[in-house]
Write a protein that binds this DNA or RNA. Structure first.
Lengths: 335, 335
DNA sequence: TTTTATGATGAAAACGTTAACATTTGAAGT
DNA sequence: ACTTCAAATGTTAACGTTTTCATCATAAAA
């Protein structure tokens, strides 16, 4: 492996000059810079990053950490996030991916290994990790889950507004009996979406019906069983707001299996607008949330903080909007 | 940041001793080892990996490279792969993720940055990259795409066998007019699956009908338009083998839109068995292929090669088997 | 006792960079 | 021609490890 000293020898200069030339120092005469660059490329030089990092105390690495890489994370989620991040990152930084629950991940958090960290968070369980990172002094952006703490840089989608939009739409379509299949207990997104639903309920002067709330866990299966529960009710809801698209798909299946027509007999609204939402039957009306946008914006923010460490942490909520498809019926008798 | 020298000072030994103690050298007396370990943990010592890597000429990093992170890669794919890999990797190695097309990714391939590389490959376009890695002398395993070259370690699913299984099943169910929606042109998997179909055709003594082959690109949309093309035919096929599940879903949608019943009027077979396959309507009969298993096995192999560099490269094909669901009808009149 | 081996430790060099400080060069100002 | 200053380059010391080679005990063998 060839080093800057080898280049120095060939170029007849000191290795320091080579280092400077290759790093674009203004101290080097343009023509020697070019001469050295030429030699370096001819010799197929590649810098040794370990050595570089050792002395600069940088790592050229951004770490992406997931709530739980094993479970709970829907797959399009991870992929979208990755795409958004890589897009922003270019090839200035390496990107590592780990689950927060990777055995004792804490022990491996070290400012010398990560220039910055992105946390794709889903539940409050991640807080321990998040604060560990913060107290280690590593620049940090938390993605996807809304945080309270103003000292932490954060970008997420506005789940509450989205939840409200979903419920609003149901009510505007004339539905009065609208149930909700809730997301995973303990996940902030679950409670926010529910809160949004509640906001809408209140705004429309309606009172919540306890039997119309059933707990899910964001999985397709949970949507299926939850929907069956709803269908067993004496007074069936005419619309169901599902905490995410996966559960909506499970719910759809439950309906198909029991021969109840969507949207004629029952309407369905999802949340997330994943790729498949347009391809269910009928296409799913849902709340659009762009994970890749969140990831992209978060990465942009992180990069900014790396460049200007003084930048103040910001909390950003990306809008979530309703996309109308065909899983919701308009009720005629709505006054 | 505290270093081994700090520990040495406290322990009253040389930093060499500390290094040895912390790395489990047999030269160190058990009790001094423990004493040092205690001090290190008390002082909250974390090794500086840059320094370590500099002298050991290792990187503690495995690189995962994707065919095209931007497009073509279905999302469950990426997520599954990641899960399989992380599972095997534990926390011995960092894992970085990049797209092969990341601007000039070649320039960043360096044995000092990657102890080993996994390539999640989909098309022959990746070969350039693969051979670059190999000639750089970095231990390498190519995943997911079957390779010809016996000098390269490779694990993939047996697409051809899978394709044959799919077609066999259609024929056994009495179908004679079975079309195929092909995967992305240039992808090895596309041609292998088609070859498998051909094998079956031949085994059943049938002759291929050129109009029954329509090109897709593995996307949902392409499945949709391809299916429409098929439905426009004078003599409609009674069954369609789709190159992957995404296209099968697109095809399903085309059918729904035109009111053609699945599986009564037309049968559908997919490939991959992604999560959603069980939740389409009707549930999709498809060929099961486990990306996470492939990833896991590939990682195992890579790790083995890192430990025993002499290990010979192996080519492994993981079986792909049919999973029967409800998108294929049994034709009575099949004599 | 004196040697000899061996088990445990230490000193110093090396890994490939960057950075602080020193030196040279050359041109401009007197 | 002599100083002065700035621009360009060189010297040397870090950075935090591991590793080679030497040293020093200590216990066994003579």
């Amino acid at each position: 492996m060839i080093t800057i000293k080898d280049i120095a020898k060939v170029a007849g200069v000191s290795h320091t000059t080579v280092s400077r030339a290759l790093n674009g120092s203004p101290l080097i005469k343009p023509d020697t810079r070019e001469r050295i660059a030429k030699i370096a490329s001819d010799m197929n030089y590649m810098p040794n990053y370990s050595a570089k990092n050792l002395v600069t105390r940088k790592s050229n690495t951004i770490g992406l950490f997931f709530s739980s890489i094993e479970q709970g994370t829907s797959s399009s989620f991870l992929a979208d996030a990755l795409k958004g991040i890589r897009k922003q990152l270019g090839n200035m930084y390496m990107l590592t991916v780990s689950g927060i629950d990777d055995s004792s991940s804490m022990d491996y958090i070290d400012p010398r290994r990560y220039d910055g960290i992105l946390v794709m968070s889903q539940s409050e369980w991640d807080n321990r990790f998040i604060y560990h990172v913060q107290s280690a002094g590593i620049p940090l952006v938390v993605l996807n889950r809304q945080l309270e703490d103003p000292s932490i840089c954060n970008v997420a989608s506005d789940d509450r507004v989205g939840g409200k939009a979903a419920a609003d739409y149901a009510f505007e379509c004339g539905h009065r009996l609208v149930a909700m299949i809730e997301g995973k207990a303990g996940f902030k997104s679950s409670s926010e979406r529910k809160l949004g639903y509640m906001d809408s309920l209140m705004a429309h002067g309606l009172t919540p019906n306890p039997t119309y709330f059933v707990q899910g866990d964001y999985s397709i299966e949970s949507g299926y069983t939850a929907m069956n529960q709803l269908l067993d009710l004496q007074e069936r809801p005419t619309a169901v707001f599902c905490g995410n698209d996966d559960m909506a798909i499970g719910a759809m299946n439950a309906c198909f299996d029991r021969g109840v027509q969507i949207p004629n007999e029952i309407s369905l609204i999802g949340f997330d607008d994943m790729t498949f939402a347009s391809y269910t039957n009928p296409p799913l009306t849902t709340i659009h949330k762009s994970v890749s946008e969140i990831a992209e914006e978060g990465t942009r923010l992180l990069l900014e903080r790396l460049q200007y460490p003084q930048t103040l942490p910001v909390q950003r909520l990306l809008g979530s909007t309703l996309v109308q498809r065909r899983s919701v019926s308009k009720l005629a008798e709505h006054r």
